[in-house]
Measured scan of single mutants.
Amino acid sequence: TEEYEYTDEQQAREAAREWREKGYTVTIEEHNGRWRVKTG
């Protein structure tokens, strides 16, 4: 599992979409105004 943090929701969603296209399972969670994208 890798985790990436973004301050911008749009960036987080874009990144998540790219990971999904590569076949990863992706979770996005908002935490204190930051967006965490977890792949695994």
Score class of each variant (00 low, 15 high):
14 E>H: 08
15 A>H: 07
24 Y>C: 06
26 V>M: 02
30 E>N: 10
24 Y>R: 05
21 E>G: 04
6 Y>Q: 01
17 R>E: 13
14 E>T: 10
13 R>F: 08
33 G>A: 02
35 W>I: 03
20 R>P: 01
9 E>P: 07
15 A>Q: 07
40 G>V: 15
9 E>Q: 07
1 T>K: 11
3 E>D: 10
17 R>A: 12
21 E>M: 05
18 E>L: 12
8 D>F: 06
11 Q>P: 03
17 R>L: 10
3 E>A: 10
15 A>P: 00
30 E>P: 07
23 G>P: 00
21 E>H: 04
40 G>E: 15
34 R>D: 03
4 Y>N: 06
32 N>V: 02
17 R>F: 06
27 T>V: 13
17 R>Y: 05
18 E>S: 11
20 R>A: 14
33 G>E: 03
1 T>I: 14
3 E>T: 13
22 K>P: 01
7 T>E: 15
2 E>G: 14
17 R>P: 01
3 E>F: 15
7 T>Q: 12
17 R>W: 05
13 R>Y: 09
19 W>V: 03
40 G>T: 15
9 E>Y: 13
14 E>I: 11
2 E>R: 15
12 A>W: 01
3 E>S: 12
22 K>N: 06
19 W>L: 15
20 R>S: 11
38 K>A: 07
14 E>N: 11
15 A>C: 09
17 R>M: 10
21 E>K: 08
5 E>V: 11
37 V>I: 10
30 E>C: 05
5 E>Q: 07
30 E>H: 10
23 G>A: 02
13 R>V: 10
1 T>V: 14
8 D>M: 05
1 T>L: 13
35 W>T: 01
8 D>P: 01
22 K>Y: 04
3 E>N: 09
34 R>N: 08
31 H>Q: 09
38 K>T: 13
19 W>A: 08
36 R>V: 15
21 E>S: 07
30 E>S: 09
14 E>Q: 12
8 D>T: 14
9 E>D: 03
36 R>A: 06
38 K>M: 08
27 T>A: 07
33 G>W: 01
17 R>H: 10
25 T>L: 12
11 Q>G: 07
18 E>D: 11
6 Y>R: 01
3 E>V: 15
21 E>W: 03
36 R>S: 08
28 I>T: 03
26 V>D: 00
37 V>N: 01
